[in-house]
């Protein structure tokens, strides 16, 4: 069963999947802003920007004050940091894995080098594969 943390991350990733919304988040990281300010760098109508803001708001990544006249948008660090931490961990896992794969490939090819003229390679796997 998905936990609240999962659902928040789900929503955060869905929201961050869009480049316009990532740009809005990056802008808000520098400070609160109102919709017209946020729309300014984009060739987009205010309703289009508002739609993105609604997605961000639903994801929990931003909040908007309900009462203030201009309803400035505010970035919530906690859900963003949670999403970024997940990404960082997954990235590190693949980085480590690929570091090891790189070393493994070097070894394989170094082993194969002396046997290059003879057609018998020392490559460890010669299994038949049926997936083609």
């Amino acid at each position: 069963m998905p936990t609240a943390v999962d659902e928040h991350l789900d929503a955060a990733f869905a929201a961050l999947a869009d480049p316009t919304r990532r740009a809005i988040v990056a802008r808000l990281a520098r400070g609160d802003a109102i919709v017209t300010d946020l729309a300014e760098p984009f060739a987009m109508t205010l309703p289009a920007i508002s739609k993105h803001l609604k997605v961000l708001e639903r994801s929990g990544l931003i909040t908007r004050s309900r009462h203030a006249q201009f309803r400035p948008c505010h970035l919530e660090r906690e859900p963003l940091d949670a999403a970024l931490a997940w990404i960082e961990d997954a990235r590190r896992e693949w980085r480590d894995r690929f570091d090891k794969l790189d070393a493994h490939l070097r070894e394989l090819q170094a082993d194969a080098e002396p046997a290059k003229t003879a057609k018998t390679s020392k490559k460890p796997t010669r299994r038949r594969r049926d997936h083609a």
């Binding site: 789900d10 990733f13 869905a14 961050l16 999947a17 999403a83 997940w86 990404i87 997954a90 990235r91 693949w94 980085r95 690929f98 790189d102």
Partner: peptide, 8 residues
């Protein structure tokens, strides 16, 4: 949503 893209 795509959470990670990693290239090597």
């Amino acid at each position: 949503s795509e959470a990670l893209r990693y290239t090597r």
